[in-house]
């Protein structure tokens, strides 16, 4: 659940930030760059704790804001999606740049507006190139969701830890099961990513 919600927000953020970094206005480019570098430069665990512990304190200190009560779920979603949004925006940016210049030129020759060129010609091609990397990031994100157990959210890891604490002698089994569980969720993602990779490389060849 956390994975799906965060992935959803992460990809939206990534596309916006990816476009932002290519924007004409220097102002927009700079803001998105700072966002991306900040979230790529600091660790996800740190961000998670910062959002969960420090952010509510910051909000409390600002007088006009209503008290910010972040559940651990939303703290997790915010941290994970902002973090991965920053990483994936790099993919978005490079894939947009990787679309052949001739495609831009043909679209200009057909007198499309900037917006139309992006929407009708560039993005549909760029998204195809992005798919394998989206898949890889989804697997990374799956692994990262285990970190939210550290701020007390009941995910697979947290549940496993709770179970272990009441059945100490089953320790090996519990941890092995947890690993297998994550692997089982990852398997279809791995498979899809491989397929996307093959599809893209085939598309390039033709």
């Amino acid at each position: 659940m956390l994975l799906i919600t965060s992935a959803f927000f992460a990809f939206i953020i990534a596309i916006i930030a990816g476009l932002g970094r290519l924007a004409k206005s220097r102002w927009i480019r700079w803001t998105t760059n700072i966002y991306v570098e900040f979230f790529r430069g600091t660790s996800l665990v740190v961000q998670l704790f910062w959002v969960y512990y420090a952010l509510p304190m910051l909000a409390k200190a600002i007088p006009f804001l209503p008290p910010l009560n972040l559940s651990s779920f939303w703290a997790g979603v915010i941290a994970v999606s902002l973090n991965y949004g920053a990483y994936v925006s790099e993919t978005v940016r490079s894939c947009i740049l990787a679309v052949d210049r001739g495609q831009h030129e043909a679209a200009i020759a057909l007198n499309m507006t900037r917006f139309q060129r992006m929407r009708l010609v560039i993005l549909p091609q760029a998204v195809r190139m992005m798919l394998p990397d989206f898949g890889n990031n989804l697997i990374q994100m799956l692994k990262s969701t285990s970190l939210v157990s550290l701020i007390g959210l009941t995910d697979i890891t947290y549940a496993g830890m709770v179970f272990r604490n009441s059945n100490i002698d089953l320790g090996i089994l519990v941890f092995a099961m947890m690993l297998v569980f994550y692997f089982l969720i990852a398997l279809p993602l791995i498979w899809l990513t491989r397929r996307a990779e093959r599809a893209v490389s085939k598309g390039m060849a033709s």
Partner: peptide
């Protein structure tokens, strides 16, 4: 002004999708 002009390119530049 551009609407009066059309162009055919050396490398076709068809939209592959």
């Amino acid at each position: 002004v551009r609407k009066n002009i059309g162009m055919v390119f050396q490398h076709f530049n068809l939209f592959p999708h």
